[in-house]
């Protein structure tokens, strides 16, 4: 029990149990409706994928503000190639290579340029969004029908036994990411670097390589999230991904990962994405104006982070 309470994601686990029970009692018809489950599952998958990538970066005491624009630019590249009759597979590979390249650029400027990641990725947020506007002139064509029916589009955007493939994919990738964090040397190095960079470096942790991997993973997950979105629903706009960077950070922080690095879980991140999505969906269903959601995210952040801090202090005192 004591070990359970010490978890960094205890706040979000309690939060999720609370909202699940609350909605089950308050609005069971809507909450257990298949349409709601599918809707919450699909958006949790999109936000969850972004947030998994963001978790790697935050764990090493950095931040990636460019993920919303990376999500946009990778998605629009994917669509653009498809509508130019490039095969879906090649479009996917090129789009993901672009994501990897962006992650590498972020990493190189942060590591070798010694520029804070907040500044580098803030620049990326504006630059990639601007690139979308300049290259598309405000219009993004939809995906041609054959591309929509392609096996790869169906793999990312289809269903399996009525469950969105995107949701299954995020669960699988969250599990693999958690395994990488807790069962591999890479994970050990990541936590060590986030916990105490100087000590990690003195113990031979390849600091630059670990940081670069975190930024690359962040961009790759953002790109994958965009492809899951567009494979599921190929009609989009240049506003694709607007504001997603802050939502992804909110999911990670609500999920118990410390912004100071070194502590966090993938389970917490996925639950954070689920919590934010489920509460918004129910707020709208219960008749609250969607604008209230923004205020709610602020309150949720404060409440859950406070729960985490108080529990940590009590344990320390005991």
């Amino acid at each position: 029990m004591r070990r359970f309470v010490k978890r960094s994601d205890i706040g979000i686990i309690i939060g999720c149990i609370f909202v699940f029970l609350l909605f089950s009692i308050w609005n069971p018809q809507q909450w257990f409706n298949w349409g709601t489950i599918s809707n919450v599952g699909q958006y949790t998958a999109i936000l969850g994928l972004l947030a998994i990538g963001q978790t790697f970066v935050i764990l090493v005491r950095e931040i990636d503000l460019s993920v919303g624009s990376v999500y946009g630019v990778v998605g629009i590249t994917f669509l653009g190639l498809e509508s130019s009759n490039v095969s879906v597979l090649v479009s996917f590979i090129v789009a993901m290579l672009l994501a990897l390249l962006i992650g590498l650029v972020n990493a190189v400027v942060v590591i070798h340029g010694k520029v804070p990641s907040m500044i580098v990725t803030l620049g990326g947020l504006f630059f990639y969004r601007g690139l979308i506007y300049v290259t598309t002139h405000g219009a993004v064509a939809g995906t041609p029908q054959p591309a929509r029916e392609n096996w790869l589009s169906q793999f990312f955007g289809g269903h399996w036994l009525g469950i969105e493939n995107g949701f299954l994919l995020v669960l699988l990738l969250a599990f693999l990411s958690a395994t990488a964090l807790y069962q591999t040397r890479f994970g050990n190095h990541l936590f060590a670097l986030g916990g105490d960079p100087a000590s990690a470096e003195s113990q031979g942790v390849p600091v630059n390589r670990i940081k670069a991997s975190a930024f690359c993973l962040s961009s790759l997950f953002a790109g994958l999230s965009a492809i899951v979105t567009l494979a599921n629903n190929p009609s989009t706009n240049v506003s694709l991904g607007t504001g997603m960077e802050l939502q992804s950070i909110a999911a990670v922080v609500v999920g118990g990962t410390l912004l100071t690095g070194g502590r966090g879980t993938m389970l917490g991140t996925i639950l954070g994405a689920f919590f934010l999505t489920a509460v918004r969906s129910e707020m709208i269903a219960l008749g609250a104006p969607p604008s209230w959601y923004i205020a709610f995210v602020g309150i949720a952040l404060l409440v859950i982070v406070t729960i985490n801090t108080l529990l940590a202090k009590r344990l320390k005192a005991a």
Partner: peptide, 21 residues
């Protein structure tokens, strides 16, 4: 009046939540 936001995925999710009830 439903404020759906400018991101397509979010807008769809908001509309679906609203239309469901």
């Amino acid at each position: 009046e439903l404020i759906i936001g400018a991101d397509p995925a979010q807008a769809r999710s908001v509309m679906q939540s609203y239309l469901g009830t």
